[in-house]
Write a protein that binds this DNA or RNA. Structure first.
Lengths: 248, 248
DNA sequence: CGAGGCGTTGACACCCATCAACATGGGTGG
DNA sequence: CCACCCATGTTGATGGGTGTCAACGCCTCG
C-alpha cells in the first residue's frame, strides 16, 4: 500500500485520501529499488515516468563545468519526482539516491488523460508541487541573502520540519544520511566551511554535527539564527478553495 | 482578448490554444491595472485569486529582518502569478509591479472544479508551473555555484530568452525596467558590485549597462561566460505525453 | 594492515560587502 | 528657463566571509 507518507504530508489540507489511494492502487504498480548512489536519471537523459518516493532520500543536482555540484533540492518519502520534468524532453539535472531507496513508478503515457481521469493524483501532484516550489523559493532567499551560518540553521530547520511531517523525526537528534559535502552542495559553500559553520553553531549552543546526525541543542535558538518561518512548509487550511461538500 | 503572450510562450508544445482561449474568455473577465510600485499582494496577506500577467513586469520578493531584499523571481507577460500560493493561507512574499502592469484576475472559488472543468486552463497552469520551477532551479544553481559575473551573464541570457519567447526582444539592445538595485537583489549581490560586474562584462566585450537597457555586444560570449544552456527555457516537444489524436 | 572515505585545522588569497564620497540626470517648482 | 532635488549610477578604501590548498587524524572495510 503506497502513498502512506504522501498522505501524511498532505493530511488536513487535502481531503481526498480515498480517491488518491485508489488512483495510486491503479497506477503505482511498479516498484523501483535503488542502492545508495544509483542514479534515477542523469543529465541529458530522457524522462520516462513520474515517481513517488516511498522510502529513502533522493538528491537532484547539477554538475558544473568546473566540477562543482549544486544540489537543487532533495526528495523525502512522500515526495514526487520528475513531475515538472516530464514536460521537457531531457533532464537538466541528475537525480540520485543518497540512501537505499524505493520508489513507485507511475507510467505517464498520456499526461492529459492522467490529469482528467485521476482526480486524486492530479490534485496531489498540484499540491505537492506547490510545496516543492515553496521550498525552492525559500532556498533562493537563503542562497541570495543569508550567510553560511544562517543557511545551515535554516536547512536544518527545514529538514526537521519535513521529516516531522511524515513522522520520521522527533526529539533532539536529527538523523540524516547527508555528509558534509552534501550539506555544502545544498548551501552553496565549501566543505571546509561547513566545519567552521558547525563550530560556530556549536559554540552558540544551537546544534552540533556528528556523522550521520545532528544534535539539536536548542531548536528555538536555531530557528532564531535562521530566521525560520515554518509556515511555508505547511499548507494552511483553506476551506474556501475546496468544494463545500467535501470539507474534511 | 487575453492570453496572447501565454499562448506565444507555450506555442508548439501545448496544442490546446482553443480550449485555453475559451476557458480564459469565461474566467478572465476582470482586469487589474497597477502603477509601477503598486503591490499586488504583500507578505502576510491572504491570497485572493489567480492572476495572468497581460503586460508589465512583476517582482516577487522577500524582505528580511536586516532590511535586505531577495527577488525570488519575476513574471513577464504570459506568466501566471499566485498559482502555487493559492494553496497557502497567507503570502510569504511581496508581489509588486515594477512597471505599469495589467493583469487578468481569475477567481478561484473552488480550486478543484477549476482543474476538472477547464481543461485548457488546468493544462496551461501545469505547463507554466513546470516552466517556472525550471527557472527557479536554475536560479538556485546560479546563486549556489556561480560567481557574480556568471550570474549576471546568466540572468541576462534568461531575460533575453524569455522576452524573445513572447516576441518582446530582438537584436542587441535588451530593454528592461530594472535598475541596478533590482539586479543586485535578483543575483544576491550588492548594488555596488553590480557596477563592478558590468565593468568586467564590458571589458570582456560581452555586454554593457545603460539606464533601462543592456547593450549586448556579444551574445555568444555572454552565453559562454554564463554557461547558459537555453534548453531549460523551452519545452522540448514530447508527442508521447500528448493524446495521439490532438497532435498539433 | 593498508587504503580510502570522511572530518578537521591552519595559512593564505580572493570575492564581495560596507562605507563614504562624488557624478549624473530627469523631474519639479519657482 | 533655471535651480534644485532626489533617484540612480560610479569609484576607491577597507574589512570580513568564504574558497583553496596542504596536511593530518579517525574510522571502516577489504
Amino acid at each position: 500500500m503506497p502513498s502512506h507518507n504522501l498522505i501524511a504530508k498532505l493530511r488536513g489540507y487535502f481531503p481526498v485520501t480515498d480517491t488518491l489511494r485508489s488512483d495510486l492502487n491503479l497506477l503505482a504498480t511498479k516498484r523501483v529499488t535503488l542502492a545508495a548512489g544509483d542514479a534515477l536519471i542523469r543529465t541529458g537523459e530522457k524522462y520516462k515516468c513520474l515517481y513517488l518516493v516511498e522510502d529513502g532520500w533522493m538528491l537532484r543536482a547539477r554538475y558544473l563545468p568546473g566540477g562543482s555540484r549544486q544540489i537543487v533540492n532533495f526528495a523525502l518519502p512522500g515526495d514526487f519526482l520528475c513531475f515538472n520534468a516530464m514536460m521537457f524532453e531531457r533532464s537538466d539535472f541528475d537525480v540520485v539516491a543518497k540512501t537505499q531507496a524505493s520508489l513507485w513508478e507511475i507510467p505517464v503515457k498520456d499526461f492529459r488523460s492522467i490529469m482528467h481521469r485521476y482526480a486524486g493524483l492530479a490534485e496531489a501532484l498540484v499540491w505537492s508541487n506547490a510545496h516543492e516550489e515553496s521550498l525552492l523559493a525559500e532556498r533562493v532567499v537563503s542562497l541570495g541573502r543569508r550567510d553560511a551560518t544562517q543557511r545551515m540553521a535554516h536547512v536544518l530547520c527545514e529538514i526537521a520540519a519535513r521529516l516531522s511531517l511524515i513522522d520520521k523525526h522527533a526529539g533532539d537528534i536529527l538523523m540524516l544520511p547527508l555528509i558534509q559535502e552534501d550539506l555544502a552542495d545544498i548551501l552553496g559553500i565549501s566543505v571546509i566551511h561547513v566545519v567552521r559553520v558547525f563550530n560556530r553553531l556549536e559554540q552558540m549552543g544551537a546544534a552540533e554535527y556528528k556523522p550521520r546526525r545532528i544534535i539539536l541543542h536548542d531548536m528555538e535558538k536555531l530557528r532564531r539564527i535562521a530566521g525560520f518561518e515554518g509556515e511555508y512548509l505547511y499548507f494552511s487550511q483553506r476551506k474556501d478553495v475546496l468544494p463545500p461538500g467535501i470539507a474534511k
